[in-house]
Amino acid sequence: MKEITIVEFPSNLGLKEPQPGKEPGVKNLPDWLWRHNLHKAIYPKNSIRLDPPRYSHVRDHQTQILNANSLVEYAREQAYLINNILTQNKFPFVLGGDCSILLGPAIALKQKGNYSVFYLDGHTDFMDVSLSETGGVGGMAASIVTGNGPEKLTNILHLSPYIKQENLWCVGNREYDDEYENEIRNSAATYVSLDHLRKQGILNTVQSFLLQIENKNLDGFWLHIDADVLNDAIMPCVDSRTPDGLTYAEFNELTSYLFQSPKLTGLEITILDPDLDLTGQYTKDFVANITTTFKKHFDTLF
């Protein structure tokens, strides 16, 4: 069986303050998931934490991005860590943090070969900084890792693009706004909105994705899971709430197909904010669903 390493990236560097003087609570997600038994359920061989630089709500003058220099510093450290894990043929199970934690793993993937990203998210996060009201990389992560945005962030270690744009799949978006969606529609990435996902079917979507990996002879894929891809009624403890979303039945079906693929190289979980789930009930349900599905298929596969 392939060894699992839980990697904790407790970063909120990619998000704006929810209110003046208050940091986003996603930095506490790894500890919160541990408290609700995710670590115990996954039963990793090892667990590693990499703390981020200090959070600031001030935008970088050059890029107009929050915490730009800190994000670059952190991404380099993340990439080094993930690269070492992959070199040892271990499986990184990454706990964020906001969506900006994708930068480090994406750099590591570029260092290892040619990979795809399955970006499962209630938003595309494929946005140019000029359209961002907050300057938070959390809302631009998919765009930045494919080479779109300020070079300070897109070309760390001179490795731009970390993920080729045509190897990015953005799945599950339900922010139906033409200006927002046109960014991803006009790119070389594959865009499967929530509406489209339901129309063409979950199995057909995943099969198309995995077939593309096979046809391109890619080295593997990284799975990004943003908790806000789930229906707002079952996952309201996120920073940008939107009506609708995947039910747990849909989520479990989709992830089960991905977990069965030997091309799955690693995954990350982001955005669930402990400050917005005071009783822990939503977190308990999330942990129960994702760990059950993951262990069922991961143990069989590896």
Results as ranks from 00 to 15, higher is better:
residue 71 L to V: 05
residue 146 T to L: 03
residue 181 E to Y: 09
residue 62 Q to T: 13
residue 231 N to L: 03
residue 208 S to V: 08
residue 93 F to E: 01
residue 79 A to F: 02
residue 253 E to H: 13
residue 213 I to M: 11
residue 295 K to F: 04
residue 279 T to Q: 13
residue 219 D to S: 08
residue 240 S to Y: 15
residue 181 E to S: 04
residue 149 G to E: 02
residue 25 G to V: 02
residue 98 D to T: 12
residue 302 F to S: 14
residue 51 D to A: 13
residue 277 D to S: 11
residue 58 V to I: 15
residue 22 K to H: 12
residue 48 I to G: 02
residue 141 A to W: 00
residue 161 P to I: 11
residue 60 D to R: 06
residue 63 T to A: 04
residue 84 N to F: 07
residue 216 K to L: 08
residue 59 R to S: 10
residue 228 D to Y: 00
residue 25 G to Y: 03
residue 245 G to E: 07
residue 169 W to T: 09
residue 95 L to S: 00
residue 130 S to Y: 11
residue 22 K to D: 06
residue 285 D to H: 08
residue 3 E to W: 01
residue 297 H to L: 11
residue 232 D to L: 15
residue 271 I to C: 13
residue 203 L to G: 09
residue 252 N to S: 14
residue 248 Y to M: 10
residue 109 L to N: 00
residue 187 S to R: 01
residue 10 P to I: 04
residue 174 R to P: 12
residue 69 N to T: 08
residue 233 A to Q: 14
residue 17 E to A: 12
residue 217 N to M: 10
residue 146 T to D: 08
residue 50 L to G: 11
residue 238 V to C: 12
residue 268 E to R: 01
residue 175 E to D: 14
residue 126 F to A: 00
residue 33 L to Y: 05
residue 202 I to S: 00
residue 58 V to P: 02
residue 7 V to H: 11
residue 182 N to H: 09
residue 129 V to S: 12
residue 88 Q to V: 11
residue 294 F to P: 05
residue 192 V to E: 07
residue 76 R to S: 05
residue 101 I to F: 10
residue 4 I to M: 12
residue 149 G to S: 01
residue 65 I to K: 02
residue 15 L to G: 03
residue 83 N to V: 04
residue 39 H to S: 15
residue 280 G to I: 08
residue 30 P to M: 02
residue 17 E to S: 06
residue 300 T to H: 09
residue 264 L to W: 00
residue 197 L to N: 07
residue 289 N to R: 10
residue 246 L to N: 04
residue 144 I to V: 15
residue 107 I to G: 08
residue 194 L to P: 06
residue 156 I to Y: 08
residue 40 K to A: 09
residue 139 G to R: 09
residue 285 D to E: 15
residue 153 L to V: 06
residue 97 G to Y: 03
residue 274 P to E: 07
residue 129 V to M: 04
residue 51 D to R: 10
residue 202 I to F: 07
residue 220 G to R: 03
residue 127 M to A: 14
residue 62 Q to Y: 02
residue 207 Q to D: 11
residue 151 E to W: 07
residue 188 A to N: 14
residue 173 N to C: 15
residue 85 I to H: 05
residue 129 V to G: 00
residue 112 K to E: 03
residue 300 T to Q: 14
residue 236 P to C: 10
residue 197 L to P: 10
residue 44 P to C: 06
residue 153 L to I: 08
residue 112 K to H: 13
residue 213 I to W: 14
residue 197 L to S: 01
residue 273 D to E: 01
residue 288 A to V: 13
residue 301 L to Q: 13
residue 234 I to V: 12
residue 160 S to Q: 10
residue 232 D to P: 01
residue 111 Q to V: 07
residue 256 S to V: 05
residue 238 V to R: 02
residue 163 I to T: 03
residue 197 L to H: 06
residue 18 P to T: 05
residue 172 G to F: 10
residue 27 K to Y: 15
